[in-house]
Amino acid sequence: MSGASVTTEDLVAWIHAFRDAVQQHKDELTRLDSEIGDADHGSNMARGLEAVVAKLDPAPSSPTDLFKTVGMTLVSTVGGASGPLYGTLFLRMGPALADADPVDAAALGVALRAGVEGVIARGKAEVGDKTMIDALSPALEAWDSAAEGGATPADAARAAAEAAARGRDATEPLVARKGRASYLGERSAGHLDPGAASATLLLEALRDALAADA
């Protein structure tokens, strides 16, 4: 990364960092999911991301190719709702970049918006439903605000990661309205949403990958 732009190599580093973060927090994600879900979010995500990383050698030649590979692999290897949702996120990001390489903060923000809108369309969730959208939506708003103010991609990623963490934490008192957790009704309150937790790891991994190369 040259400060103002992000290369394919930087984005590959992001995916590796996400894999590492999920592996590190796998048990925590599974614990969160055991409280309001199927108790498999951590193991499913870890398995899927190991499969993703295995597909990245040799590395894809462009961000579009990278995100297509990541998305298709997640759809095919991650069980439950997480595979289709995370897969959709990356599959929508790729075309939004229109083969640009490297990309600036604004372009990467456009790709992130396309990805998040894809997740919203697929999962039919909105902020307040106690899902990954509670982390992704504020992260996207923070990214756009930073990019519009002239922030570097690293600075935009830092702002997005902070917003995602706040969104994740805000899911604790919520009553789930989507997914398996919604079956619990009022009993789903008092627990962090595991999808919001893993989505925060995604943004924190981007922050770390771009900071390391800034």
Rank of each mutant, 00 (worst) to 15 (best):
P173L: 11
K26I: 08
G190D: 07
A197R: 07
V52W: 08
A139W: 00
S145E: 12
L11T: 04
G37K: 07
T200V: 05
W14F: 07
A205C: 09
I36L: 02
S5C: 14
S62I: 05
R180C: 11
R207P: 02
G179F: 06
A154F: 02
Y183E: 13
A156M: 03
I36Y: 02
K130T: 00
A114E: 04
G190E: 04
V110H: 13
A199N: 08
T7I: 12
Q23K: 14
D169V: 06
D65I: 12
R187P: 00
V6R: 01
S2H: 15
L29K: 07
L202R: 03
D20C: 11
A105C: 12
G48K: 12
D134L: 02
A209G: 12
A17T: 12
R207Y: 03
G179C: 06
A107F: 01
L201C: 04
L174M: 15
V103G: 06
V70F: 03
S82I: 07
T73A: 02
G118T: 00
S188Y: 05
A197F: 08
S62G: 07
L201S: 01
R180A: 11
R19K: 12
K130A: 01
S61H: 13
A165S: 09
I133Q: 03
R19C: 13
D169E: 15
